[in-house]
Amino acid sequence: MKPEDLLLLVGREMPFGKYQGRLISDLPGHYLAWFARSGFPPGEIGRLLALMHEIDHNGLRALLEPLRRR
């Protein structure tokens, strides 16, 4: 993980699927868990979804709040 990835989570929108257009940091936990079970897509989006899953799974979503205010 790179520190810039945290900024991408609060600034990048989901490019496809049921939650298309929603910020990655705002995706519901059950959707992230589904990706974890089914497999994350390749590339940057998959890396960001995996990171957000780890953050959500460990109850650390509050860490992203200061980044939202930037």
Rank of each mutant, 00 (worst) to 15 (best):
G39A: 06
F16W: 08
E54S: 14
R70E: 08
Y19W: 15
P3K: 13
H57E: 14
G43W: 04
E13G: 04
P41I: 11
L63E: 09
P28C: 07
K2V: 02
E54T: 07
L60N: 08
V10I: 14
A50Y: 08
P41W: 11
L51T: 15
W34F: 15
R70M: 03
S38F: 03
L8W: 00
Y31T: 02
L7E: 14
R37G: 15
F40C: 10
L49W: 15
A33C: 02
L60F: 13
W34R: 11
M14F: 04
E65G: 01
D26I: 02
G29R: 04
L27F: 05
G46N: 07
Y31Q: 08
P28R: 06
S25I: 02
G11H: 11
L9G: 04
Y19M: 06
M1N: 03
S25L: 05
R69V: 01
D26K: 11
Y19L: 05
D5A: 15
D5E: 14
G11T: 12
K2P: 00
M52W: 00
N58W: 13
L64R: 07
I24T: 06
L6T: 11
P66S: 12
D5R: 02
P42E: 11
L48D: 04
G21N: 08
M52G: 09
E4S: 13
M14H: 07
G43D: 03
K2L: 15
P28H: 10
P3H: 12
M1D: 00
E13N: 11
Y31E: 05
S38M: 15
P28K: 06
V10M: 08
G29D: 10
G17A: 09
R69Q: 13
S38L: 08
L8S: 08
L7P: 01
P42R: 12
S25C: 14
L7T: 12
R69I: 00
P28Q: 09
H30Y: 12
L9V: 08
L27V: 04
E44Y: 02
H53Q: 12
L9Q: 07
G46S: 12
H53V: 00
S38I: 13
Q20W: 07
S38P: 00
G59M: 09
G11E: 06
E13W: 00
L23G: 07
W34G: 03
L9T: 09
L7R: 03
A33E: 14
D5C: 09
L9I: 11
L48N: 03
N58Y: 12
L48G: 02
E44P: 11
M52T: 14
L32W: 00
G29M: 03
I24R: 02
H57T: 05
L27H: 05
R47A: 15
Y19Q: 08
V10F: 06
Y19F: 15
G21P: 13
W34Y: 13
P41C: 07
K18H: 12
E65N: 10
E65K: 13
P3S: 07
E54L: 11
V10S: 10
L7Q: 08
L7H: 06
A33G: 11
L63G: 14
P15W: 07
L23S: 05
E65Y: 03
E44N: 13
R61S: 13
L51H: 13
L67D: 00
L7C: 02
L64W: 05
G43K: 07
H53N: 12
G46R: 11
R22I: 10
R70V: 15
P15F: 05
E65D: 10
L23V: 06
E44A: 09
L23N: 02
R68Q: 06
L51R: 06
R47V: 05
L64C: 04
R47F: 08
L49V: 06
